[in-house]
Design a protein around this nucleic acid. Structure first.
Lengths: 149, 149
DNA sequence: TATATTTGCATCGTGAACGATATAATTATC
DNA sequence: GATAATTATATCGTTCACGATGCAAATATA
């Protein structure tokens, strides 16, 4: 058995598992307000700045537009957002919040606090979190640069 | 704009993004040997111990059996594994490596070394990695316990 | 100003994930 | 030993992810 092929030595497996499990932990809270986790991410992007083209939203989330487009269509069908052709540039599709989408921010505002209970563990505290965030951000930047065309 | 709803304050978004990007980084290496990333995880479980029931594989990967079953069927179609009913317990399906599946371990053995280049960044070194792994393991255990029925 | 290239988004196909549900085999209870 | 409860896996439907490809609008080049 090759040591380097053991699960316990894989960073990726840990990230993959932690990501799935924490997303599962969000599920009951997000279901209440009618969102999936990726849709919640899109809403956070729009709550920060309303009226953005598809491309900007995708880049912010490190996703491809072919992932975001169908996601946005479902969100439009649920009346959380609108999609309109840009006036200056006819290729762009500008995504904006509906009143329902704007109102959702208030309902969602408690979720981060409710979630903090689920991830409360010895290793992640007020003191250690910033260091962990920096490590993750560094990793993400390194990976995203190494994946460029 | 609510502070707690900003992307930059989300641990989950970081895990989700890092997981996706690192899996993408694996893609070219795994394609060469005909595996997807989740299939690679299953192979690692079987290389560690051949001949396991579906349930054990799923538990080891923190996945549901309804995710693993179709995954295994595709791997069976590719002749990496076999699926046979258990003799002692007729409900179990025992998953075993084919010769092709066993031979793949040798081909895969270089992947972890090739990948270590992609994640090489200031924040993750020989010294800091064990601490990061412990934090992730702690988080995963906390989450998996909080998600129990 | 024609033509070529680039850009922004969409469509399609495949492979996960997972909740809900079904089915068959085993075990427990009466 | 018949019935109920449990366990192991599978099926189904919906929603991502993403590579490959298509198309139309905008820009660059000849």
């Amino acid at each position: 058995m090759k040591e380097q092929l053991k699960l316990e030595n894989q960073l990726c497996f840990r990230l993959y598992t932690a990501s799935r499990l924490i997303t599962q932990a969000y599920h009951p809270y997000l279901t209440k307000i009618g969102l999936t986790y990726p849709q919640y991410l899109v809403m956070m992007v729009l709550w920060e700045q309303d009226g953005q083209p598809v491309n900007d939203i995708a880049r912010r989330l490190y996703l491809e537009t072919n992932t975001v487009t169908p996601l946005l269509k479902r969100m439009e069908a649920e009346d959380f957002i609108t999609r309109k052709k840009g006036k200056d540039d006819g290729r762009k599709v500008i995504v904006s919040l509906t009143p329902k989408g704007k109102a959702l921010e208030e309902q969602a505002s408690c979720i981060p606090f409710e979630m903090s209970g689920a991830v409360a563990c010895r290793s992640i505290t007020e003191e250690t979190a910033p260091e962990l965030y920096r490590t993750m951000d560094d990793l993400i930047e390194t990976l995203s640069r190494s994946l460029l065309p």
